[in-house]
């Protein structure tokens, strides 16, 4: 087991147990009424969901950075997260979100549509540039439709619902979301695992990778499926949570041998840990309304991104990568 995995496997259970007690109300079994109910019905599913969503985003970020051979890649670039969000927005628009199952299903449908479109446009050649451009095109198209839906919202309530949901949060989630996201995320991480050797081959560039037996179309199919399952299910239960996929592989990379294959599992574990800790933190913060998780992570993520860019510009990229 690598150093990173061992470290994370120690940290994660500790943080998990701690997060069950942390919140606006610090649980004290002897004093808090209904402590077991709070844990079993509120905090346990929420903590699990944080780990699941974070694991999906972290592993997707690691796989995409490996695929694009670029430390600045983020799974959000590929249009699947915006596609899922557009699906969710549609469910608000049509008023279906009142039914608890329909919102995530709409989001998953949106993610699937984005995946299908991505595969359709880029799938023929397996070329990386076309794939990236297609993803960015889908992302901006989905973004435009979301803005359209917000500006044409049938009523102010729907508009505020949409805007709030888009910020990303794990508030008031239940076991239902866990049952939905857990198997899909696990399947997605399995797709990245299947792609790990091809991602390693890409260290030497596209031509060398193909000369070693990497099939670009097959690799792309694993990645589209993997990002669709992890990010699509993540957005469908938690909304848009940015920057996890970007930051986590960076934090983990120095503790691995830097091969993309060595980064997938530690990034899943670290992503789970980061979202879990961030979600516990927003619960503890003494604000009138709970800070949205998506906002909190972006508040951490954006300065980090800037720091990363500056560090690369100074030519320390060798150490970073």
């Amino acid at each position: 087991m690598s150093r990173a995995n061992a470290m994370l496997l120690l940290l994660l259970p500790g943080a998990f147990v701690l997060s069950l007690f942390a919140g606006r109300v610090w649980l004290d079994f002897s004093a808090t009424p209904n402590a077991m109910v709070i844990i079993a019905e509120l905090r346990l599913p929420r903590a699990l969901l944080a780990v699941i969503v974070g694991a999906g985003l972290g592993s997707a970020g690691a796989a995409m950075q490996g695929y694009l051979r670029n430390p600045l890649a983020d799974p959000g670039l590929f249009g699947i997260a915006p596609g899922a969000a557009l699906g969710a927005v549609a469910s608000f628009w049509f008023g279906y979100a009142a039914s608890a199952w329909l919102l995530p299903l709409f989001a998953l449908a949106g993610a699937s549509a984005a995946m299908g479109l991505l595969a359709l446009i880029a799938g023929r050649t397996g070329g990386i540039a076309l794939f990236t451009l297609a993803g960015m095109m889908i992302a901006s198209l989905a973004g435009a439709f979301m803005s359209l839906a917000i500006s044409l919202a049938p009523n102010a309530f729907a508009m505020s619902e949409i805007v709030t949901w888009l910020m990303g949060a794990l508030t008031d989630r239940s076991w239902r979301e866990v049952y939905l996201a857990a198997p899909l995320t696990a399947a997605g991480i399995a797709c990245f695992w299947m792609a790990r050797k091809d991602l390693d081959a890409l260290i030497l560039g596209d031509a060398a990778a193909r000369s070693m037996g990497m099939r670009p179309g097959v690799l792309q199919a694993w990645l589209i499926a993997g990002v669709g399952l992890t990010v699509g299910s993540g957005v469908s239960v938690a909304g848009i949570i940015g920057f996890v996929g970007l930051i986590v592989p960076h934090l983990v990379r120095p503790f691995t041998d830097r091969r993309p294959s060595s980064l997938i599992i530690p990034s899943a574990l670290a992503g789970g840990l980061l979202v879990l800790v961030a979600d516990s933190a927003v619960r503890i913060l003494p604000l009138v309304t709970e800070l949205r998780l998506g906002i909190a992570l972006s508040l951490i993520g954006a300065p980090f991104f800037l720091w990363l860019l500056l560090k690369m510009r100074r030519g320390h990229a060798g150490g970073m990568l």
């Binding site: 260290i203 030497l204 560039g205």
Partner: peptide, 10 residues
């Protein structure tokens, strides 16, 4: 190949 690039510092 000619370019000899290595994407990650392995």
């Amino acid at each position: 190949p000619q370019d000899g690039e290595t994407a990650w510092d392995v």
